[in-house]
């Protein structure tokens, strides 16, 4: 399912002393099957974009096209639910949305709201719980007896069970330890590939953006600062650093090397392996390695 934001503007609290412009002239195309990362500081508009992706917020100007539906400020719309069925959002700290007596009921909650039968929802719950790396026994437990990490996974399962075409992730690994982080990110990547989903990741982690995304959008003060492939984005790290954003460690390290060696590598490396390859080549040129 294609998603497209066209000249989207969003103002919070219109006509109050707190009114402020959160998004200005934002245009982003997300063709079906894309893994898009949105990066930027807190307050850059990332989270506001995210809420436009399933019509929780409507643009105050411009339009958002989700599949064959158009969301604008103008009219009262009825079919928002059909949009939300197709676009699942994993909010930051999603464990805060758990409320049912059992894990199973909580996971079934979303699908059943969208008209899935109970038996089908239960089947999906079993599937989803395995997908997030938990065992089936957990389904009968109360979500509030679980550890923080497990609760996070259950909440994610609740979104997966909706079987959305598009999955939107808002800092899905915030507060997790390194192992948990990696497991969750790898899982979403697998899903993305296996089910041919569109994935939109809102993150602070340049590493994750570089590692997983096909496309990156850099937001700054409510506007699109830059968009392109990871390699394009990190090719000129200076601009990003001026905004006070990090660049991936690999890119930073490559820059340091290039400065010290007064050379320019053939490309901007976004993985450790690529960079090792380049360094290896550099040493080979001098002749001490074969």
């Amino acid at each position: 399912m294609d998603i497209s934001l066209q000249q989207v503007e969003y103002r919070y609290q219109v006509n109050s002393p707190f009114e402020h412009l959160a998004l200005e002239d934002v245009s982003i195309d997300i063709p079906s099957g894309t893994y898009l990362a949105i990066i930027g500081h807190t307050g850059s508009g990332k989270s506001t974009i995210l809420q436009h992706l399933n019509a929780i917020l409507k643009p105050t100007k411009g339009k958002v096209i989700i599949g064959d539906q158009e969301v604008t400020n103008a009219k009262k719309q009825k079919n928002l639910k059909s949009i939300r069925k197709k676009v699942g959002i994993v909010f930051q700290f999603p464990e805060h949305q758990l409320f049912e007596e059992t894990v199973e009921k909580d996971i079934c909650f979303g699908p059943m709201n969208f008209g899935v039968s109970e038996s089908e929802a239960k089947r999906r719950a079993r599937e989803a719980i395995l997908q997030v790396g938990l065992s089936e026994e957990i389904l009968a437990k109360s979500p509030f007896d679980l550890s923080g990490g497990q609760m996070r996974r259950v909440a994610i399962a609740g979104v997966l069970a909706m079987e959305p075409d598009v999955i939107v992730l808002d800092e899905p690994t915030a507060g997790l330890d390194p192992r948990g982080r990696k497991e969750i990110m790898d899982m979403f990547y697998r899903l993305h590939k296996d089910r041919n989903l569109s994935t939109i990741l809102v993150t602070h982690s340049m590493e994750d953006a570089a590692l997983y995304a096909d496309q990156i959008v850099v937001m700054h003060q409510g506007k699109v600062f830059k968009k392109g492939s990871p390699r394009e984005i990190f090719q000129s790290p200076v601009g990003l650093m001026e905004l006070g954003l990090d660049v991936p460690e690999v890119v930073r390290f490559q820059n340091k090397l290039e400065d010290t060696f007064h050379v320019k590598f053939s490309k901007t490396c976004v993985t450790l392996e690529e960079l090792t390859e380049e360094i290896h080549r550099l040493f080979k040129k001098v002749g001490e390695l074969t």
Binding site: Q51, N54, I56, K81, R84, K85, V87, G88, I89, F91, P94, H96, Q97, F109, G110, N113, F114, G158, V159, M162
Partner: peptide
């Protein structure tokens, strides 16, 4: 918090 939870549940079809 209320706002966030409302949004999260809205996304789950409430």
């Amino acid at each position: 918090e209320t706002d966030k939870i409302m949004k999260a549940q809205t996304a789950r079809g409430v």
